[in-house]
Design a protein around this nucleic acid. Structure first.
Lengths: 239, 239
DNA sequence: AAGCGTCTGTACGCCATCGAACAGAGCTAT
DNA sequence: ATAGCTCTGTTCGATGGCGTACAGACGCTT
């Protein structure tokens, strides 16, 4: 098996004890996602959870008038579809692929059974859920108090942390949807970052040149989320 | 026992099966909170969970520069201190009393044991957590897209739903802290609502006169949260 | 009843973001 | 190489919320 499709590239799966992993191993289905694929709709039923390996997934809230805002981003540190084991079955947000890649799918029944055991899997899923809540709440206050410039930095850094390379495939239009601002606002903010030699981009490809510079320019929100994720989540293989 | 101090005034406690309730009943400690009391600090350790009866609690995120924003409000439909059973032990937000009243306290050990059982209590707590996440995410998008006027309506309605009377004890200054806006912004928005005969207030006492009118004036965010809470949470005594 | 502190009302200039409209630049397909 | 589409850059007026400053109103205390 090639390293790049190893389920244990997902941090949650990686930190499961052997016996627990063995139990679900056969049920894990490799799936490939491309940019824009929808894992589940807002209000739609959820049939499985997904453990991203190289894919990155955005949770987007939507408004009746077409407005939107990303409320969290999930990569190989976590899992998509928590509403299944939380008991709600659906959520009021859409899960959409922000960066193409692969993930492992686990069907509704299997993940629920596993969660109900109350073992390491439950423990991991709950801690991840709390990390996700931190991201959501920090997004809320960031939306309230910080400039588009700062939020773009936060967004780039959060995405970068979940990516193997330093290049994002993402148009300014899409970033604007994520941040819930106008496309022109992103153009302007991105222009500033480019002038400052922090990023370089062209037609949907953004390359982060100076990561440290982005962090300096960013609001505190990124650091809050990062610190809390590091605290709550396993960062590599246990055992 | 007077009706007003019955633990079963809390919807979660009320919908526990008899045997599960009996097990924790003796450990429930009645506590009285006044406006501004802090249940736990941002980043501080949490020693107990609280089931509000008449009290209302705000979850507030804070910024280094003093900025703040309410990310959720919890009344007798829920519980404060989820980080305990989620495994994180602390959260990055402050829980502060927004409306004076009583609550029942359950110590760390008891609630954890109860949660670990995997029975009805776990089930209820998880569903409540998901309802709370809905509130958080809707707050995030509301902060991004809606006016102070609309947000004030949302805030009033969410508070009202958790209150026995139609009078809130709350200065405009405090509301401003919750919404993360200037006090003057609240004065202006509240002035409009008063002129429209939807509310009446004076020196820290707000009376809602026309609830329906508030709903009409509000953004969709209130309805989204309300609908999801109704779906996920028990609304009265089970058995 | 006088005094003081708290709460609310109002005004003004400033700035970030919005909305709309359009120009240019770079792929890609035929 | 030409046409057409997507993506990015720029402009301009409008506007909502911010920061600051101050004035009036209410109510508690002495």
């Amino acid at each position: 098996m090639s390293v790049s499709t190893d389920p244990k590239q997902n941090h949650l799966l990686a930190s499961l004890p052997v016996e627990d992993f063995k139990r679900i191993e056969l049920h894990l289905k490799l799936v490939t996602f491309k940019l824009g694929d929808v894992l589940h709709e807002s209000g739609g039923s959820i049939h499985a959870v997904y453990f991203p390996i190289t894919a990155i997934v955005s949770k987007l809230n939507l408004l009746a008038d077409g407005g939107s805002a990303e409320i969290a981003v999930i990569g190989n540190e976590g899992v998509v579809g928590m509403a299944l084991f939380m008991g709600g079955e659906t959520t009021t947000n859409r899960a959409v692929v922000q960066s193409a890649g692969i993930a492992y799918r686990l069907s509704s029944k299997i993940i629920k059974d596993e969660f109900t055991r109350g073992g390491p899997m439950q423990h991991l899923l709950l801690r991840f859920t709390q990390a996700l809540m931190t991201q959501m709440t920090q997004t809320a206050i960031c939306n309230r108090h910080h400039s588009v410039d700062q939020q773009l930095c936060r967004w780039l850094l959060l995405s970068l942390d979940r990516l193997a390379s330093n290049e994002l495939v993402m148009t300014q239009e899409l970033i604007a949807n994520m941040l819930g601002v106008r496309r022109e606002g992103v153009t302007e903010a991105a222009g500033k970052l480019q002038q400052a030699n922090l990023i370089a981009y062209s037609r949907g490809h953004i390359t982060v040149v100076d990561r440290k510079g982005l962090e300096d320019r960013c609001c505190e929100c990124y650091a809050v989320v990062k610190t809390e994720c590091d605290r709550l989540l396993p960062d590599r293989i246990a055992e």
